[in-house]
């Protein structure tokens, strides 16, 4: 029974392929562990994720616990980051803000990665007029500076967390489409794709099971750095008042509301900004480390 034996062969091939893949990832992880700065970045991100998950437990106060008698306190032992003009504890708000930032980061990047990835895969795989058309669309998106694009989308959709995520996500689509398209173009002419086609795999299966897994490396790097960019963009949007609405403790919004008090009460702007910077710094370290770990030839 030739057909059945072919299926068995494909299954066997998948098993060995998976085993190879697992050891490949282990190898990447091993290389990443050796990179001290990448580990620092990972540590920072872990702290961020933990604070997002356990915000309710870590934060001593609530998001909107106003207490006007305690307003505008400098950092002290009860209020580590001080209080804002409504008497709210800034530290608690910052901790809760990590949840929002992470949400925005992951969902925006998710939107961009999936949409951009699918578009890029189709463009690269089918080529021709479809490729041209999709890439022209990407050029149109790229012709507008991304912050401006995000601002316009949020303006059209209205304020709010989900619209911010959509806006930032859409403005990031072109980079993922390019990465995936470039990978597909390189890979689709390689022999394992021909082999898959020869055993009767259809296009979706080829793209999904063979091409995309092999292009994961640059996508992962871009995604890590993309989360950083998304958090920055979202903070920027909130800063100019176009994103998340009060009293949501988004870090950029906190910067914006603290701005008028900067002369006498700089702690309102200093701490949220510092936290943003450390977060982005950590993500960048991790992203750089991943890039080196995934392609060690690039390191010296």
């Amino acid at each position: 029974m030739t057909i059945d034996s072919k299926k068995v062969d494909i299954q066997k091939e998948n098993v060995t392929e998976d085993a190879k893949k697992r050891s490949q990832w282990l190898e990447v992880w091993r290389r990443l562990k050796q990179n001290k700065s990448a580990m620092v970045g990972l540590a920072i991100i872990m702290v961020l994720i933990l604070s997002a998950l356990f915000a309710d437990i870590i934060a001593p106060f609530g998001i909107d616990d106003q207490n006007l008698m305690n307003a505008l306190q400098k950092p002290n032992s009860t209020h580590w980051f001080g209080t804002d003009n409504f008497g709210r504890d800034i530290f608690s708000r910052v901790v809760h803000g990590s949840r929002i930032s992470l949400q925005v980061g992951f969902i925006a990047v998710g939107i961009a990665m999936i949409t951009g990835g699918i578009l890029g895969a189709i463009a690269g795989y089918y080529g021709g007029r479809l490729d041209n058309f999709i890439m022209r669309m990407m050029d149109i998106l790229l012709a507008i500076p991304s912050i401006l694009l995000a601002i316009s989308i949020v303006a059209a959709l209205g304020p709010g967390l989900s619209n911010v995520m959509i806006a930032v996500g859409i403005s990031s689509i072109p980079s993922y489409s390019r990465i995936v398209r470039a990978s597909v173009l390189t890979l689709k002419d390689q022999e394992f794709v021909e082999a898959a086609r020869a055993v009767g795999a259809n296009d979706v299966r080829i793209i999904g099971r063979h091409i995309i897994p092999n292009s994961m490396a640059p996508i992962i790097v871009q995604a890590t750095l993309g989360v950083a960019g998304a958090i920055l963009s979202a903070a920027g949007l909130s800063f100019i008042g176009l994103g998340i609405q009060p009293p949501t403790p988004e870090w950029g919004a906190m910067l914006s509301s603290g701005r008028q008090f900067i002369r006498d009460y700089p702690h309102m702007t200093a701490f949220p900004g510092l936290v943003i910077m450390i977060t982005i710094f950590g993500l960048n370290l991790l992203g750089d480390g991943l890039r080196d770990a995934l392609d060690p030839r690039l390191k010296n």
């Binding site: 950083a228 920055l232 903070a235 920027g236 800063f239 950029g252 910067l255 701005r259 900067i262 002369r263 700089p266 702007t269 200093a270 900004g273 943003i276 910077m277 450390i278 982005i280 710094f281 960048n284 370290l285 750089d288």
Partner: peptide, 22 residues
């Protein structure tokens, strides 16, 4: 350089105003 890339430039602007103007 990495810190510079990580710093939101609106925050950097505010801090610079704080230091150099205020």
């Amino acid at each position: 350089a990495l810190l510079g890339v990580s710093m939101p430039n609106f925050w950097q602007g505010l801090m610079m105003i704080l230091v150099f103007s205020v």
